[in-house]
């Protein structure tokens, strides 16, 4: 029993690309949360919220949660061990979901503001 056995060493990625991409998703989720909270605050400032405003805030939180779900799914994919092979390219559906949440945020924000 010596340490000379051939063991497939997972290729080390000196650029830490998956880690960096995971953290990019994390900070984008944070930016999304800040925008959601600011939109929510918009409702709080106008006094007692109406039923319509409660619905708008609920949709706002849902959009934020949808973004979080997309980000979390992608982060888990990227966190797979290096031995499992190189990480797969992001799918267009993930990109569309993330950008779609942003557009929903704009729509709800406009509805709240105007």
């Amino acid at each position: 029993m010596s340490g000379t056995e051939e063991r497939p060493e997972p290729a080390r990625d000196p650029g830490l690309q998956p880690e960096r991409t995971r953290m990019a998703w994390r900070r984008t989720t944070l930016s999304c949360a800040v925008a959601v909270v600011l939109a929510w605050r918009q409702v709080l400032l106008t006094g007692e919220p109406t039923a319509a405003e409660v619905v708008l805030v609920a949709l706002l939180v849902l959009a934020g949660l949808a973004f979080l779900t997309a980000a979390h799914t992608r982060i888990r994919r990227l966190a797979a061990p290096a031995a499992a092979g190189p990480p797969r390219t992001m799918g267009i559906r993930t990109a569309l979901l993330a950008a779609g949440c942003t557009l929903v945020l704009v729509g709800l924000g406009a509805a709240i503001t105007l």
């Binding site: 650029g15 984008t28 930016s31 918009q42 797969r88 950008a99 942003t102």
Partner: peptide
């Protein structure tokens, strides 16, 4: 795959720019 991941991070950076502009809009108001 490293090029694709870099492209993904660029996409995310643009998305953050979008969130910053949206947050800025609420902040002005």
């Amino acid at each position: 795959y490293r090029f694709s991941l870099a492209n993904e991070r660029t996409f995310l950076a643009w998305l953050r720019t979008a969130f910053a502009l949206i947050g800025g809009g609420f902040a002005v108001d």
